[in-house]
């Protein structure tokens, strides 16, 4: 078969595996740098919030985690669309590699939301539109992971999971607006988590932490995808030679 030069050759797992291995340390390093800078700004330099006192500092974790949980789902849907359209094996693996991290981000967002809600509004859980949508997003993640785990054949699991992601991503705005409508209908006031005027240091602190979370998610996804690649390509020759040649880096 003539070896066509095209995008798919680069998306082949054999080429991507060492690439991912090489890139992971850099993402870890960058994530740590952003983390330190973000924490330094957010925790040490940022002033007290005139309304919420020192408790507001939880936003340096809560907001990045919420953004990441949303962003990762969209990235997974992107990979799903690529996988369904071009039938590339790697995109399905990327989506599966991102799912646990996305779910953890959603969980962290809910946890920190509760830890923030307790001192501010006196309740661990508040049926606020954003928190409720975050909870539903966590359900979507769990649904995706349950479906892909239930299907043994990797190709079908990627395609079915991909389709669920696309259906999910279409439904997210609908879910968000219906929850918002439901929230304003029953409660009237929508609690704005970051309404107070954001001092520049606060804003930068949050953005830096968001970058830290982003780099962290990429690093973890790359590490996990390498294991998935090994698992799925175990019958191909390059995996056999790699594994037999001592401990693969």
């Amino acid at each position: 078969m003539k070896d066509r030069f095209n995008l798919y050759r680069f998306a082949s797992p054999a080429v991507f595996y060492p690439l991912a291995g090489a890139m992971t340390p850099y993402f870890v390093a960058v994530s740590i740098v952003f983390g330190i800078a973000g924490l330094w700004l957010g925790m040490l330099v940022a002033p007290t919030d005139f309304q919420q006192g020192e408790g507001y500092r939880i936003i340096f974790i809560h907001v990045p985690a919420s953004w990441m949980s949303m962003f990762i789902y969209l990235v997974m849907a992107f990979w799903a669309a690529i996988g369904l359209a071009f039938n590339t094996r790697l995109s399905g693996m990327m989506a599966q590699a991102l799912a646990p991290t996305g779910a953890l981000m959603a969980f962290l967002s809910l946890l920190t939301g509760a830890l923030w809600g307790k001192p501010m509004w006196g309740a661990w859980w508040v049926w606020d539109a954003r928190l409720t949508s975050e909870l539903i997003l966590l359900f979507l993640y769990i649904g995706y992971m349950a479906l892909t785990a239930a299907i043994d054949d990797p190709r079908r699991s990627d395609k079915a999971g991909g389709l669920l992601l696309l259906v999910g991503v279409v439904n997210i705005p609908i879910i968000y607006f219906s929850v918002k409508w439901w929230n304003t209908l029953h409660q009237g006031s929508s609690i704005n988590l970051a309404k107070s005027s954001m001092a520049t240091t606060m804003l930068w602190g949050m953005l830096l932490m968001a970058m830290c979370f982003w780099m962290y998610s990429i690093a973890i996804a790359l590490m996990r995808v390498r294991t998935i690649i090994l698992e799925r390509e175990r019958h191909s020759d390059w995996v056999k030679t790699l594994l037999l040649a001592g401990d693969p880096k």
């Binding site: 979507l140 349950a146 239930a150 299907i151 259906v167 439904n171 929850v179 439901w182």
Partner: peptide
């Protein structure tokens, strides 16, 4: 999506219930 999968019944509820929420909200509303 869950055709032919073991544990299909429970799995369907995991996939479909989150997507039912808008219908529930406007229906009950």
């Amino acid at each position: 999506l869950t055709l032919g999968l073991r544990g299909g019944g429970v799995l369907i509820s995991l996939l479909v219930l989150p997507l039912y929420i808008p219908v529930l909200i406007f229906g009950a509303g």
